[in-house]
Computed example of a mutant assay.
Amino acid sequence: MAKRNAQTGDKVTIKKYANRRLYNTSSSSYITLDDLAAMTREGTEFEVVDAKSGDDITHSILTQIIMDEEANGKQMLPVGFLRDLISMYGNSMQSMMPQYLEASMANFRANQAKIQEAFKQGLGNNPLAKIHETNMAMMRAVGEAILPGAKDSEQSAAPSQNDEIEALRKQMAEMQKKLDEIDK
């Protein structure tokens, strides 16, 4: 949820002057694009207006912040996505894209919060663990159907795994000997 100006409860207004300086009217101080990026990450709601005309230029300033982040090696937007996004300009679907992207981002944030909460509670009591258990049970059932003797006790399975590992080690040792002979 976006934070509002603590004093007035309104959006923080940032004025952009002709000399490209940004002035935070709430704190009565000049700020940078990095400060605006930090405010965005903190959830502070703000608007950027052109000091001379009064036009709302928030969109272009946010786009500039994204461009700066992408240029500084913090690339998050894949080239394919950028190409698709550019191709949507002038397309009949252009008017639908803002709502679609906002809905997609809201869905992403909701799922992100659920996943983070699941990890906080531990994997034992969450849907991810249950899905994992179901998948493992299905794999065991398939294994038993394909290999009828696969349901043997875990104790008898362990030695066979050790035998397989030992056989692989021997094969690797033999291959290494052959490679050493080739080098000579």
Rank of each mutant, 00 (worst) to 15 (best):
Q171P: 05
D34Q: 10
H59C: 04
L36G: 03
G9E: 07
N107G: 02
A103E: 06
A6I: 12
S28N: 14
N162Y: 14
M76R: 10
M93F: 08
E154N: 10
P98N: 01
E117L: 06
N91Y: 02
R83V: 09
A103T: 04
K184V: 05
D68L: 06
A51E: 11
D35V: 06
D35W: 12
I165L: 13
I57S: 00
M97F: 07
K114S: 05
E181V: 11
Q171D: 10
S160Q: 15
A129G: 03
E42M: 13
M139S: 13
G54A: 01
G54Q: 04
E42C: 07
A145E: 07
Y23L: 07
R41F: 15
Q112Y: 13
N135F: 14
G43A: 08
V12M: 04
S160F: 13
E117P: 03
D84A: 03
Q161T: 11
Y23K: 11
P127R: 12
L179H: 09
I57G: 03
A18N: 11
I66L: 01
L123C: 09
E47F: 05
K151R: 12
D180H: 13
L82V: 02
I14A: 06
N162T: 10
Q155I: 02
I66K: 05
M136A: 10
T58K: 03
Q64H: 02
A51G: 00
Y100A: 07
F81S: 06
E45F: 13
T40Q: 12
R41A: 10
M97T: 02
G43Q: 14
I182V: 04
A110M: 04
T58E: 05
R21P: 00
M1Y: 14
G122N: 12
S29E: 14
A129Q: 07
D34Y: 13
M76N: 01
N72G: 03
L147F: 11
A103D: 04
K114T: 01
Q99V: 00
Q64D: 00
R109Q: 13
K130W: 08
M76C: 03
D35N: 13
A129E: 06
Q116R: 15
A6D: 12
V79E: 02
N91G: 00
I61N: 02
E45P: 03
N162G: 09
G73W: 01
K74P: 02
Q99I: 03
Q116T: 06
I65P: 01
Q75W: 04
I66F: 02
V79H: 01
K151N: 08
R20W: 09
D163V: 12
G54L: 03
R169Y: 07
G149W: 12
V48N: 00
M96K: 15
L36E: 06
I61K: 01
Q64T: 02
Q64P: 00
T44Q: 14
Q116E: 11
I65N: 01
S156P: 04
S29T: 15
E102Y: 06
I65D: 00
R21D: 04
G80V: 10
F46S: 07
I115T: 14
